[in-house]
Design a protein around this nucleic acid. Structure first.
Lengths: 220, 220, 220, 220
DNA sequence: TATGAATGAGGTTTCATTCAT
DNA sequence: CATGAATGAAACCTCATTCAT
């Protein structure tokens, strides 16, 4: 129910910044070098932050020469995009919780838990994304688009619940969806990452706030 | 009910990063120059972002020499602190809405509105704060401390409502407070700043989500 | 028998760098300010070295304004000259040891002791002088001229002793004088200042080396 | 018999300031560039003095870019250390004069001559060392340590002569050694460098002063 | 394809000196 | 006389990027 991580995403939506400009390696050796650079970049970014990282630190961490970096990427932004792309698989948690299909509360809880778990697994990267989004308009836009996709889908679900008479009909679905999704992503950053509380507590509270907030009537 | 802006703050809490290192001018002329630098800094930061801003742009914008900057400040961080400090008065909106005292829903609505209005008035600065908090640990900590103050106060209010039997007693007050406050501040950034919706709509939704979320019973 | 300090100097020799360019104060208050600046300068130089000292540190130490400095001096070199001048009186040790007139060994010992004592009393200043002489050609020349005066006088004394058949006649008087005087000043810096040995030991050794070196025959 | 130059040094003594921080080039081209920088630095230092030299003058003199300097060195002090190191070979004069082994006077004369010749060959560098030693505590300490090594070795030789009944037994060996060695190095600076006298004259005088000073009995 | 030395524009910072008050 | 704010030239240093090997 959050918005940064690509849980449960429709496969046909372009999620990343344009990756078309990046030169792909043509040999196996090249592919290995490129992969090493991407892995090194993630380590460097997580260690030093996006800003703190110097481009030359990346090939250094990957044990290759400076020039090699420019063979595959042409800027810090570009390799950051590649890092994000490489992280996707990890983030798409395997068993997406369509739970037992129909109990909306169970679905919400499962979604929230899935989101928060994925967030924690990639906490440092999430922080980086935030940082980069505040710095680079392209990533800000990327983030906005992603958030919009989730918000819209959640908005549709909310509208459905309203139509079925299960949720407060006076709430604007899109705005509500944005507020509640934002709430989850925000508390993940503020509470979970600094480990102020346990995962279960957080899941419980945010789920209650979703359910209460929507005035969800349990489908008994 | 948000957390970044200092509405209704207790007076004895140190709000800003350490300002002790800054040399204060001893003459009226000096005070004028210093103020001009702070004002110029705000313009430059709002125009170019914290990172984009070069130190020398600030004295240039203030029509004075580079060296003058260093007479009063010793880094971009330091003058940013001064900008924040200068903005405080503006942010402390005069008539804090203790509304008509006792209707909790009215209080929540008034608080949310006040917060969002103040946020909008200083939108660019709020964005800057976020940016800087993600870059500089000192500001991150500052932000965290501020958020904690609000969260705790709101948590106390929530606990009170629970004790009076007016709010869902199963909610953890502090966690709930953090979630709901974070929700407001987040939606301000995501919706209000890009002007996707009108202020009134946002106030309405977040207030409903607070009220529903807490299962607030109207004290009729 | 050393050469840096002005022990026993003939009064008609211009010992200091040109002091004519310095503006003299015309009021009593001005004289006080100027004196305070010179005193402050000595403290600052001794604390931070000639190079480390910033001009503005001097008025700061003297509790007056920057501009005031330029009323009396126009450069670091100039005020350093003034510091040296002010120190002269202190350096001219009161009872110059013409000892009991005629025993050359006693005269040498007394001279060495007097020189070393004065050196120690002004050790920090001596070090400064060395530093400045290596930096500023004008002070280097000043130092050279002073050394020359002493060397020449000592050379005359040595020549006298040779003529009287009391000293090794094969030694070049001027060169010998420069070597032995340099030896004393050098050991003062290297041994006495870091307090590796007691004054008496040093006096004894350098005196023996003078006496032996000249093959001085005791005038029994 | 002097102390600055490393004539006849024991091989196991660390002679230079820490050179560990300097990045060594890994290619031949890099080695060439680094060497060019060191050579350029020596020229620049000798021309402008240590203080007068601006860092950027060095790569300029070496016909390379500013940044290149920082690839190999990180400060003026560091490249100065490298200049000293490069000069060592030049200073370690090949045939150290163990003269004809046993005549102490001949040994002293040969040592003094060797020292003074080496000093003259590197006169400008010696001056720089003095300058730097007065400025930078690290170099001062380096200089002190070197001097101590020579002084101690010479002190042992003096003690030997005393034991063999060939030298004045009342002289403190270490202090005497420091005084006489300092004398030689000092006169080199004061007389030889400004070319006031010929090398032979100076060798003669300092040797006589050593011999006389120690009351050396010729081993005929 | 890989290397890593070389580049140099672009920023930061200091401090001697001036000058209006 | 005294003040101290303001000046700005001049040095410093970094790091993204190129290119010969």
């Amino acid at each position: 129910m959050g918005e940064d991580l690509l849980t449960d995403r429709p496969d046909d939506i372009p999620l990343l910044a344009d990756t078309s400009g990046m030169k792909q390696p043509s040999t196996a050796r090249g592919a290995r070098t490129r992969a090493a650079l991407v892995a090194a970049a993630r380590r460097v970014f997580e260690r030093d932050g996006f800003l703190g990282a110097r481009i030359t630190d990346i090939p250094a961490e990957a044990n290759c020469a400076t020039g090699t970096f420019y063979k595959y990427f042409s800027s810090k932004e570009e390799i950051f995009t590649a890092v994000l792309e490489a992280a996707q698989d990890d983030m798409l948690h395997p068993g997406m919780p369509h739970a037992d299909g129909d109990d909306p509360i169970a679905v919400i809880e499962a979604s929230n838990r899935a989101y928060l778990v994925a967030f924690l697994r990639n906490a440092k990267l999430m922080e980086l994304m935030q940082q980069v989004a505040l710095i680079d308009p392209k990533f800000r836009e990327l983030r906005r688009r992603r958030g919009a996709i989730f918000a819209e889908r959640n908005a549709r679900r909310i509208a459905e619940l309203q139509e079925r008479g299960l949720a407060d009909p006076t709430l604007d679905p899109l705005l509500t969806s944005m507020a509640l999704s934002g709430m989850v992503s925000r508390i993940a950053m503020d509470v979970l990452v600094p480990q102020l509380r346990e995962l279960d507590e957080v899941v419980e509270v945010v789920t209650k706030l979703w359910v209460n907030g929507l005035k969800l009537t349990p489908t008994s």
